[in-house]
């Protein structure tokens, strides 16, 4: 059973179409990255999945209609919208009390064990904690909930590198298993790409690419051909080509690595590179903005 199943999911705000008829099928045990620029429809899609907004089309999450059955859905699904949503006035202890009070599948001792490994005092208020600690606290709460689906919307925004790493390490060590599914959006694509089992590229409210990382690894290869092999490489039909230090770099889709390796240096393209290339480089790298 897919834990998220959408057909023709659509959402319009006034005249602006935020999500333009997308189909999704996310299976159990996957870690899926939803990648797209700001305003591409990522958050709207997540909002629909989480039952925060009404939508058109059909959408089933853990077998529930999210908009009509949000309360039921939230017993199966956890989400971290971003790091700043825990109330500043809330004491750590009371945060545990409250979640224990309202969530039937919250294992308080698990959250306490996790917090014991951090520097977070139970007496502190959220407002007194550093951003990284707030994220740890939120993670402790979410991981102690025995939910099947975890949705993360920019979970590490504004955190320093150590906390970001610790976040994903904990996620893989203490939370994820084959019965759970994680759906994540982030701008720090480099940091999550090795964690992902699947990626979905979204732009202008449509899905541009939906593939497993295995597929992507098998399909896409980047080649920096030697001077004498440039023409031969071009004949193999690269999807796109650009120049680095004056040397051409080509992205191939579905050409065997063995075929390309003798022509020069080959590289597996990062998800971010791939996304930029699929979207068209000129659009995302305006003069002066190129990284």
């Amino acid at each position: 059973m897919n834990c998220i199943e959408a057909t023709g999911l659509r959402k319009q705000y006034g005249k602006k179409i935020a999500v333009d008829g997308i189909d999704l099928g996310i299976g159990t045990g996957r870690i899926v990255g939803l990648i797209g620029p700001n305003g591409a429809g990522k958050t709207t899609t997540l909002d629909a999945i989480l039952g925060l907004i009404p939508f058109e089309g059909s959408l089933k999450v853990m077998g529930c209609d999210p908009w009509r059955e949000r309360e039921r859905l939230m017993r199966e699904v956890s989400f971290i919208a971003d790091v700043a949503v825990l109330p500043r006035w809330l004491k750590v202890r009371n945060a545990l009390d409250y979640v224990q009070g309202v969530h039937p599948r919250f294992d308080r001792s698990k959250a306490e064990r996790f917090l014991a490994r951090t520097d977070i005092p139970m007496k502190a208020k959220v407002g007194q904690l550093s951003k990284g600690m707030v994220a740890q606290l939120h993670l402790a709460l979410v991981m102690a909930i025995d939910a099947r689906l975890l949705v993360l919307d920019e979970p590490t925004l504004g955190l320093d590198i150590l906390y970001r790493r610790a976040f994903y390490t904990s996620l893989l060590n203490d939370y994820f298993d084959q019965e759970r599914t994680i759906l994540v959006t982030t701008h720090q694509v480099e940091e999550v790409q090795d964690i992902l089992t699947d990626v979905i590229f979204i732009d202008h409210g449509r899905i541009i690419l939906s593939a497993t990382m295995d597929d992507i690894e098998a399909r896409y290869v980047e080649l920096m051909p030697r001077l004498e092999t440039v023409d031969a490489a071009r004949k193999l039909g690269p999807v796109t080509e650009y120049a680095v230090f004056g040397r051409p770099v080509m992205l191939f889709d579905g050409v065997a690595r063995g075929h390309l390796a003798p022509m020069g240096e080959i590289r597996r393209p990062g998800i971010a590179d791939l996304f930029v290339m699929m979207m068209g480089r000129d659009r995302y790298e305006a003069p002066g903005e190129a990284a």
């Binding site: 989480l50 949000r70 309360e71 859905l73 939230m74 919208a81 109330p87 039937p104």
Partner: peptide, 17 residues
């Protein structure tokens, strides 16, 4: 305004409750 709504809504408490 404090965006805590997103935390409250992540728990199985309906809006009516």
């Amino acid at each position: 305004r404090e965006r805590t709504l997103l935390f409250w809504k992540s728990l199985p408490v309906s809006d009516a409750h």
